[in-house]
């Protein structure tokens, strides 16, 4: 592979952007945050983050925001991942290995079904109000 220049990168982005505009964008308000402190890294959070990005690419969900953060305070259950999206409660999933990351994209984000075995934290207070 020839070494890509920044100009080529810009052009590639423009091409992809045009492709994206052609189809309906579904992932706009979806945020995935992966805990990436010492505990997360030691438990494989780097592989988890890569798995999310690869699966999002495979599913053509390019407008999903994928962020990294420090320790969420659940070192015993790393890698931890927070998912925020419309129509679903805010959830922190624990012990998210690459396989679970793929499951989260397919079931939680696309299928709108919770992955019960990995739910770590209660849904946010706003949806608990009755």
């Amino acid at each position: 592979m020839a070494k890509m220049t920044l100009e080529e990168l810009k052009k590639l982005r423009e091409t992809k952007k045009r492709e994206l505009e052609k189809r309906e964008v579904t992932g706009k308000d979806i945020e995935i945050t992966v805990g990436m402190a010492t505990c997360g890294i030691a438990a494989g959070a780097k592989q988890t983050l890569s798995a999310f990005l690869n699966e999002l690419e495979a599913q053509n969900l390019s407008n999903v925001v994928v962020r990294q953060t420090g320790c969420m305070g659940y070192c015993y259950a790393e890698p931890t991942v927070e998912i925020r999206m419309p129509g679903m409660p805010d959830i922190i999933y624990g012990k998210v290995d690459p396989e679970t990351a793929v499951k989260i994209v397919r079931k939680h984000i696309l299928g709108k079904v919770l992955i019960n075995d990995h739910i770590l934290d209660k849904p946010a207070a706003d949806i608990m109000k009755k």
Partner: peptide, 25 residues
């Protein structure tokens, strides 16, 4: 500047392509 933002999955996919081309050279 080249990618617009660095947080969307789309930008990160392009960034990977760019980094791979640098590393493979």
């Amino acid at each position: 500047e080249a990618l617009g933002d660095l947080e969307s999955a789309g930008s990160q996919a392009l960034l990977k392509e760019y980094l791979e081309s640098q590393e493979n050279a």
